[in-house]
Amino acid sequence: MKSKKLSLPYIAWMLVFTMIPLVMIGITAFKDRQGNFSLEPFANAFGYSGVFFKSLWIALLSTLICLVLAYPLAYLLTRMKKSSQNLIQMLLMIPMWMNFLLRIYAWVILLQKNGPLDTALSLLGIHGTYIGNTGAVVVGMVYEYLPFMVLPIYTVMSKIDTGLIEAAQDLGSNGAQVFGRVIFPLSLPGVISGITMVFVPSASTFLVSQYLGGTDDIMIGDVIDKIFWTDSNTGSAISLVLMVFIFVFLVIMNLFGDEEAIA
């Protein structure tokens, strides 16, 4: 009984901040401008399918790069002294204390014409444009979300019982086998929550592409941002479709892990 009472505030919270907004978005998405039932918002939403797939592609690419960068880092972290582990964790976290927009803005300055990167590469005789393209957007996203990949993987890995690793070694496994058959499978829950924590926000992000991308790099989050003020119906429909895509993605992720992704 007691636990039920304790959970009441949370239930109220979820009702007010999750369920009601969700229902409102749902209702808005099925109305036309006059407020009658209509599928028109969805018809409009499909006009943006190009942006949709590009956004999902950018999000997927960013997630993959994050994973490739984060996994070895997390693994190395667990093998360090406790004090260095704390230090590096701290260094990973510090940028997140800074405002998100400032960090993206710093990237604009790094990548712009005659900026540090351009100047350095010009000295080596390499000339190019490093901003205003999809690559710059992906770089920004990876930078933004990398800690969200490292931390869950690291947390899960650091909890792996060293006894298991020693047992594998005692039974004659070499380094690669220990990794492939003990460490990697045990770290999967961390990988899955890392992927979720990077993919979901990056698929719906906005502003990053406005700052780092060119005219063709608009993302679905930007479209929602732009359209919502004048046409909240289409805006709602787009975000509903995006939610469905993300849900499907999470369900697929779930097939790999033990219900880690959604729950």
């Binding site: 401008r33 409009n44 006009g47 943006y48 190009g50 942006v51 005219t215 608009i218 930007d222 479209v223 732009k226 359209i227 003020w229 004048t230 046409d231 289409t234």
Partner: peptide, 13 residues
């Protein structure tokens, strides 16, 4: 006005 907004997003998208 709404149409203008819609078309502008379409151009960008």
């Amino acid at each position: 006005y709404a149409y203008m907004q819609e078309k502008f997003v379409e151009i960008q998208a």
